[in-house]
Amino acid sequence: MSSTTGVSPPGAGATGVTREPVRRHLSVRQADTVARLTDAAVEEVRGTGYEGLTVRNVAKRAGVAPATAYTYFASKDHLVAEVFWRRLQTQPPTPPDPTATAARRVTTAIGDIAGLVGDEPELAAACTTGMLAGDPDVERVREQIGVEVADRLRAAMGADLDEDRLDALQLALWGAMLSAGMGYFLHAELAQRMAGVTRIVLGD
């Protein structure tokens, strides 16, 4: 999902990329406002789905003025992309098992990522749609997500790291997430479906 075509995995081969937070230097009050908005967005999506989601309704649920909400989130796509990014940040990966094969370690890492929204189909679909948007705010969040996912897969591969295979896994993972978002299979099935791909890519 590159910023231009929406198909290349974000962060692919992004070794050494400096990761910056979506917004820096927030006061405690501002950080609380952002948290309230993202929490409210999740509740709104659960009730209305992506189509019914609006920044204005999220602001109302969060008890925030719409004008204030728009100073933090330019669009509903920006908002749901931020929801996924925050979940990725706050839910650390399972520590790699040094006795397991590379394929099993990577499968575990992918399961962690898939589990961020896997049991919430409306939210998963909203995040998939939102992260495909081409506006600059979404592009920035998408790149941060891509770098984090690449780092997690790289750590899981460990001594078996091969950048070409890492790129292949990222392509497969983002393609699988897009397919789930399009309704070809349930998000809850994503990790299982990726397990076979991972074994093929890593030769396990």
Rank of each mutant, 00 (worst) to 15 (best):
M1G: 15
S3M: 12
S3H: 13
T4F: 15
T4S: 15
G6Y: 01
V7N: 03
P10N: 08
A12N: 03
A12G: 12
G13A: 07
A14L: 12
T15E: 10
P21G: 12
R23K: 07
L26M: 11
S27A: 12
R29L: 14
A31D: 02
A35S: 15
A35M: 15
R36A: 15
T38C: 15
V42H: 12
E44T: 15
V45A: 06
V45W: 01
G47F: 10
G52M: 02
G52K: 05
T54Q: 02
V55Q: 01
V55F: 05
R56H: 10
N57Y: 09
A59W: 01
K60P: 00
K60S: 09
R61T: 10
G63N: 11
A65L: 04
T68H: 01
T68A: 10
T68W: 00
T71Q: 07
A74T: 03
S75W: 08
K76Q: 03
K76N: 00
K76L: 04
D77W: 06
H78S: 09
H78P: 03
H78Q: 08
L79C: 07
W85P: 04
R86L: 13
R87V: 13
R87D: 03
L88V: 05
Q89I: 11
T90K: 14
Q91T: 14
Q91F: 11
P92M: 10
P93K: 12
P93Y: 02
T94D: 01
P95W: 06
P96D: 04
P96N: 05
P98H: 07
P98M: 09
T99W: 05
T99V: 09
A102M: 02
A103L: 07
R104V: 12
T107H: 12
T107N: 10
T108A: 14
T108S: 13
A109T: 02
A109E: 00
I113D: 00
G118I: 07
G118A: 11
G118S: 13
P121W: 03
E122D: 10
L123G: 03
A124H: 09
G130P: 01
M131L: 15
L132C: 13
A133N: 02
A133M: 06
A133R: 11
G134Y: 10
P136Y: 15
P136V: 13
P136G: 14
D137G: 14
D137E: 04
V138K: 03
V141H: 05
R142K: 12
Q144I: 12
G146R: 07
V147Q: 04
E148C: 13
V149T: 11
A150T: 13
A150I: 04
D151F: 06
A155M: 05
L161C: 12
R165V: 07
R165C: 10
Q170P: 04
Q170D: 07
W174C: 13
W174T: 06
A176W: 00
A176E: 00
A176I: 02
L178K: 08
L178M: 04
A180Q: 02
M182I: 08
M182C: 12
G183P: 02
G183N: 03
Y184V: 09
Y184I: 05
F185Y: 06
F185R: 05
H187A: 14
L190T: 02
L190K: 11
A191V: 07
Q192D: 08
R193V: 08
V197L: 09
T198Q: 06
I200T: 14
I200S: 13
L202Y: 02
G203C: 08
G203T: 05
G203L: 11
